[in-house]
Nucleic acid binder design. Structure first.
Length: 103
DNA sequence: GCCGTGACGATTC
DNA sequence: CGAATCGCCACGG
């Protein structure tokens, strides 16, 4: 387990400051794998449910949020981000220019 | 070592 | 501009 790509992903995701968001591709690139965005997303999905991983702070490169049902209900992720001070645009995506954070 | 899979990304139609 | 397709990489079987 230790040394796995997953752990690195979780570690980076945990470093995302409150009120900021990052993208799967950004994490993948930070780890040295530019095309591993999918693998990063997979790591989030496989992440322990009880962990403190702020997976809701990880969004797509376009600012779109991951599948709403992935967090247990529609709009849940968005509410969590809003609670942290993240703003959204009319397209229903995160304002990347304001909250994008890269490791 | 190949096959299937996946919370993505960028390009093409 | 919206939808579809290909490509990418890591993990489990």
């Amino acid at each position: 387990m230790t040394g796995s790509f997953f752990e690195l992903v979780w570690k980076v995701a945990a470093r995302v400051p409150r009120g900021k968001v990052t993208t799967y591709g950004a994490i993948a690139r930070a780890l040295g794998s530019r095309g591993a965005a999918r693998t990063v997303g997979w790591a989030m999905r496989a992440a322990p449910a009880g962990s403190k991983l702020p997976c809701h702070r990880v969004v797509k490169a376009t600012g779109e949020l991951s599948p709403e049902d992935a967090f247990g209900g529609p709009g849940v992720q968005r509410l969590l981000l809003e609670d942290e001070g993240v703003t959204f645009n009319a397209q229903g995506g995160v304002d990347m220019k304001r909250h994008l954070w890269i490791p």
